[in-house]
Amino acid sequence: MAEAFSRWGAVWRRNALVWRKSARTALLGGFAEPLFYLFALGYGLGSFIGQLDGFSYLGFLAAGIISTSAMNAATFEGLYLAYTRMEVLRTWDGMLAAPLDISDVVMGEILWMGTKSFISAGLILVVTAAFGFTAHWTALGVLPVAFIAGLCFGSLALLVTSFARSYDFFVYYITLAVTPMVLLSGVFFPLASLPEPLRLGMACLPLYHVVEVVRPLAAGRLGVDLLWHLAVPSAYAAVTAMMAIWRFRRRLLQ
């Protein structure tokens, strides 16, 4: 296991070093945009809404934005950047010529995607904490949750990438999966306002459960149900990671 971790770590490290080189630009994109949403909607709509489920609207929305940005960071990495490494730069070929195999490459990539989500959520958390939207110390628990969310959405994105023949293919996933999840997972408003079938549908998808863990954690409300919610993205991560490994084996080794 320690050996496997060191192989995954080599892949992780390569991505981390590349990221560090352009971190400033990358941070601006991944960090400023969600904050614009948070402040624009939070102040704009918040004044009409007041309290929601016992949270101030800004506090409610902050948890949603943190969860969404964790998802987006890993999704972008797993779709566009991973595809570039696989097909354009052929970085993966180089790794497969070394003593790494497909599972090492995929696991290293997924761990890196978890890290991207961790960084992304962490930066927003700093700002929201500074403004007092996520004041409780348990909000630190959001960071490992964001990491797990990154593993989950990174694995899903890689699974999509394993079928992609060009960048255009990703539009399907973004439009048909990511956008509905962002709009209907309790990021901007509670799920209770949705019709029953839609609510059940969204409860099968991971983003809703990430939000349901992040929101109470950020506000200092702990409970056993958080673990149940956390189990959903964890299970998604485990299953889709295995599927992605299987798919890339079929795609790249023939």
Binding site: L17, V18, S22, L89, R90, T91, D93, G94, A97
Partner: peptide, 11 residues
């Protein structure tokens, strides 16, 4: 050594 170079352009 692969047929086409896959050196890392970021490095």
């Amino acid at each position: 050594v692969p047929q086409s170079d896959n050196l890392d352009p970021d490095f």
